[in-house]
Amino acid sequence: MSPFDQPHHTAPTELFTLVDVCVTREGKLILSHITDHFHEGRATALVGPSGSGKSTLLRLLNRLEEPTSGQIYFHGSPLDTLDVHLLRRRVGLVGQQAVMLAATVEQEVSYGSPGLPQSAVRQLLRRVNLDEVSLDQSTSGLSGGERQRLALARALAVDPQVLLLDEPTSSLDTKAAEAVDQVIKDLVREGLSVVLVSHDLDRAAAVTDDALVLDKGTLVDRGDPRSVRYLVE
């Protein structure tokens, strides 16, 4: 069976497995000997101060970056043996800034899946609590929080199993951030797996079940986000 059409299991199964993953860039160690796993159907936080390697770790999971050594598995298959385009459709990523790719809301949502019927677009907008915007509204007029939720809808439109979120709320005010957090929580409840990068453990704890704490490229703790050690210098 292909790793892309795994059924949902009742017991937590390993979604991603990392074995001794190291990343070195221009002689600098970014990630050092990371061995861990992410469970399916759960929300996992990657927390740590800036420069701890958490964003790099996230970007390894949809192959926007490659490890210098070590191996990453998706549903037990080595990541580099899978078709990268198919992998990225199953492992969506939404960045910090939520860049808009199209002129209107409808085009934006269906960017990765052209020809998506309007009813599906509307349904996706409902899933991210954006039912109030009209389909032909210009994306440039949206607020930061709306753009972030629209980017989530765009990622959901290609039907991913996992969403990778890189500081999705760090550039938003509290109210907009809470609205995005609520959408993330709802998506996890629907069965989507989420890996969320954050420098703010409290914020991450509100939406995730597990936390991996990184510091200077090393995994320093992992466990319940309310009890892990995370020292901000």
Partner: peptide, 13 residues
């Protein structure tokens, strides 16, 4: 870069 990677992340070639 962010724009291009956003497209790549949707599975575009």
């Amino acid at each position: 870069r962010e724009r291009i990677e956003a497209r790549l992340s949707l599975g575009l070639t």
